[in-house]
Design a binder for these strands. Structure first.
Lengths: 341, 341
DNA sequence: TCATGGAATGTTAACGATCACAACGGCGAT
DNA sequence: ATCGCCGTTGTGATCGTTAACATTCCATGA
């Protein structure tokens, strides 16, 4: 039997209290799992809550506590795999805390857009703020934030002193480059992401470091923009250079474009050219050939972010300067071959 | 090194009123753009607001009006391109309305998960609800919703009588299939999405309809799960059948897997086999070869959804049975060739 | 001249929760 | 028996806003 739907105002704490024969304060205590409540009345209250289908009004709670149960997230409104995955990973992690996640997406990561998005969140009186800000231009917007709102930046400016969680881009790029060198390649080329992205910069540094360590010549840096298109463009150049035998691309989509360019020029992967990407997008295993790539652990990033944010929220203070770095792992597939000299 | 900052209470309407030398009600009137306020006091109040950096407290407003300025969205927490794009498109559209968007993502679209996500949103007293519910199992969860919350379903059950916005899957699939037939192919094979997805079912219907119209034999239906993996599996089968010359895949990632399988079997695309996908993911233009595909207009879907939802919210009633269908467009690239018989 | 009305502003009471503190009752210690 | 403590429960006051109603002031017409 289904219960008929009741119209009008939803039941309040008072209604529950009346039905259970206690005061509204006792109901509040049961809800907040306060310790000094007898088992007997706790059950009575629980029963009344269930019978009325009562839901506490978060607005009322927020009003008196001065704190909402909402976390604001600022992320770029793009289908870029990294930021998008981060967003959903964070949302999922946040569910367990009872906090709601408010997304304020932004078309581009310039200062004004970010400021606007942050303002919208402050209007909503969010309890905390997460900014996925992988570009330098995001910095100034965050500098002018009221200091009293808990804030964690993901992939933000390493130079800036704020609470920060990042994927260890340098380590990932280093591992990828070293893997190619270990396969016998004389050197490794790199198609980077946009230079104003911290992620891209870190990957360039890791690549350079591995090359320097090996005492190997550093080829000119090619710059892409994360897109398959940019991989294709740069690929058309690389495909014509016979001494290019190994390429590390800043992400998997660039690798895809590169793959197509090499294919069009009759250069076989991995026989003629070895490739390693970054991100491990779900389709990477079904590129032709399946792509060896570096996988960042988005769930771990999300978990660390949430942890740092909750710590700030619970303590009622903004801890500034905490860092958390998540190491990525190299996923071996078939786009790397031993180099025959 | 970490610094901590304590939070104080932000200024309220009373503070503004005191500074402006008026009553709090007048401040409220200025904020809500009530008509009977003299220009002079309006300016005084505006100045005081600016000086104090006052922001109205949405919680207090929500408490007294019984209505929050938040829209809840339930979406699957996956990197599936379609749902993810829809989500960001909707978020962007919603910004203009002043409503915040609360995402409640869900690991899988079974009844319990959806019910839980909806419950979380109702807990937050959202003003309206958008459910991206492309599978049949979502239906029962929505049936038990309180009738008084504005609700729009995206890609939901066409049989179910609720406000619904959908991409015209049938038309898209029909166009793709017809395009292949027009290129001279004797018939067109199809690798579908999971059978419990409405999107997948619609695409199957459009494919069948085009075939039937042309009076052409309908090949056995192959079933995938949106993943490149499933495209690859089914592709290994198709690649061994010499009479397969045209394939319409339910999405671009399936097409990617298929591409790899055909490639491994030495069957050239588009020379030996023509392919059309669905979704127009950003990388589709850089597959090998560039993929002809069907592009749904996510922005249009988002706009229609928001429009229907706001209408319900503003009128305070739930219009039931309204439908809005968005037509997709065929994007021509190089994965289709004229069939030489 | 005085009611009548409308524009501008003020006053008071909700809304539904939490917080601080008061009151009650039982129980052991003096 | 009296005192005081502690676990339990109840009683206002309060958060910041909007809704409903009250007030003031001045222009207008009988």
């Amino acid at each position: 039997m289904s219960v008929s739907v009741k119209r009008g105002r939803p039941p309040g704490m008072m209604d529950v209290a009346r039905l259970a024969g206690v005061s509204h304060q006792t109901v509040s205590r049961v809800l907040n799992e306060h310790k000094n409540v007898s088992e007997q009345t706790r059950l009575k209250v629980r029963a009344a809550i269930a019978e009325l289908g009562y839901r506490p009004d978060r607005a009322a709670r927020a009003l008196v506590t001065g704190m909402s149960q909402v976390i604001g997230v600022v992320a770029q409104n793009s289908s870029l795999y990294g930021p998008a995955s981060l967003l959903t990973a964070f949302e999922e992690a946040a569910q367990a805390t009872g906090f709601a996640v408010n997304v304020g997406s932004v078309r581009s990561l310039d200062e004004r857009s970010i400021t606007e998005a942050v303002e919208r969140h402050l209007d909503q009186r969010v309890a905390g703020l997460v900014v996925i800000a992988p570009v330098a231009s995001a910095g100034p917007a965050l500098a002018h934030l009221p200091a009293d709102v808990p804030l964690v930046t993901i992939d933000g400016d390493p130079e800036r002193s704020s609470t920060l969680v990042t994927v260890d881009q340098v380590a990932g790029a280093h591992a990828a480059t070293k893997r190619l060198l270990d396969a016998g390649h004389r050197t490794v080329w790199h198609i980077s992401g946009p230079s104003d992205w911290f992620d891209a910069a870190g990957r360039v540094r890791g690549w350079e470091a591995a090359l320097t360590e090996a005492g190997v010549e550093i080829p000119p840096l090619l710059t892409g923009d994360w897109s398959a298109a940019s991989g294709y463009r740069n690929g058309q150049l690389l495909a014509r250079l016979p001494d290019v035998t190994a390429v590390f691309t800043a992400n998997d989509h660039i690798a895809l474009g590169l793959l197509r360019a090499l294919n069009e020029h009759g250069r076989k992967v991995p026989d003629d050219v070895s490739i390693i990407g970054f991100d491990d997008v779900p389709e990477a295993a079904y590129f032709t050939p399946p792509l060896t790539t570096v996988r960042p652990d988005f769930a771990a990033v999300a978990a660390a972010t949430l942890e740092l944010l909750m710590a700030q929220i619970e303590s009622g203070t903004s801890e500034i300067g905490t860092r958390r770095t998540i190491a990525p792992t190299l996923v071996e597939r078939n786009s790397v071959a031993q180099h025959r000299n």
